[in-house]
């Protein structure tokens, strides 16, 4: 279906609203986490990075899953809108995974004493980042839109199937090489006030993801619509 200027404007408006809402929600989460949530006794201030890192990770995983699912739909229905949506989700996912990949080690250093550990979480973070990067790089290297859409869909689907295997491998590695029990990065049961902040973090990250994707998608459709009008 060909995009129209008016149609894409509508999408952009939604995207703007959701993004603004998401950013506002994130500000609230920041204030809540920094000021209104107590410190965790053993881990100190660094534990609060949790409230930023975990929601970002959630959004990155969500973005990735959506790329995979939409890619399947694309190969089935061959609707260019699905490809545009997958591409938007991948770009947004890349952004969230950059946040994951930077806040993760910053959290790890004071808590575990090392910038990086090959545990399930961080390893998956890195793999996800590399998959997103590969997806976006492949797209930029192909100029025919139909071929680009097809190839991206293939990578998206294969990436989605890969993730459980990464989990499995790291899990098996960890059960055979148990790490000495240092400090657990997240308390086994969170006190309600911390849980509340975390849940709000998830909400903010989800709204922000949605806002970013819708806006990005709208902008892409708008650009195509404009180009079509010029021709």
């Amino acid at each position: 279906m060909k995009p129209t200027i008016s149609g894409s404007r509508g999408i952009i408006k939604w995207g703007l609203a959701l993004t603004a809402l998401g950013l506002a929600a994130m500000v609230i989460v920041y204030v809540l986490a920094l000021v209104y949530t107590p410190f965790e006794v053993r881990q100190g201030a660094a534990q609060k990075i949790f409230y930023v890192h975990v929601p970002a990770a959630w959004s990155a995983m969500m973005a990735f899953t959506i790329v995979g699912l939409v890619s399947i739909l694309y190969l089935w229905l061959r609707d260019e809108r699905l490809d545009a949506f997958a591409a938007s989700s991948a770009e947004v996912g890349l952004v969230f995974s950059v946040i994951m990949l930077t806040t993760g080690p910053i959290w790890g250093k004071p808590i575990w004493g090392t910038w990086w550990t090959w545990d399930a979480r961080l390893t998956l973070t890195l793999i996800l980042f590399l998959l997103f990067l590969g997806y976006m790089t492949l797209r930029s290297a192909i100029h025919d839109p139909a071929e680009r859409a097809r190839f991206s869909a293939v990578v998206g689907i294969m990436g989605m199937v890969l993730v459980p295997f990464i989990h499995l491998s790291v899990y098996l590695f960890r059960t055979l090489h148990p790490k000495p029990i240092v400090l657990k990065a997240s308390a086994p049961s969170l006190p309600p006030v911390m849980l509340r902040t975390l849940l709000l973090g998830f909400l903010a990250a989800s709204v922000l993801y949605l806002g970013f994707v819708v806006l990005r998608y709208g902008l892409a459709r708008h650009a195509v619509a404009e180009r079509d009008e010029e021709n």
Partner: peptide, 22 residues
């Protein structure tokens, strides 16, 4: 607590990314 600088660094980095992209 002493590791406050890490907390600030992480919050700032994330905020910068969100604000730049957003």
């Amino acid at each position: 607590p002493e590791n406050t600088s890490y907390m600030i660094a992480a919050y700032v980095v994330a905020a910068v990314v969100y604000l730049l992209y957003g």
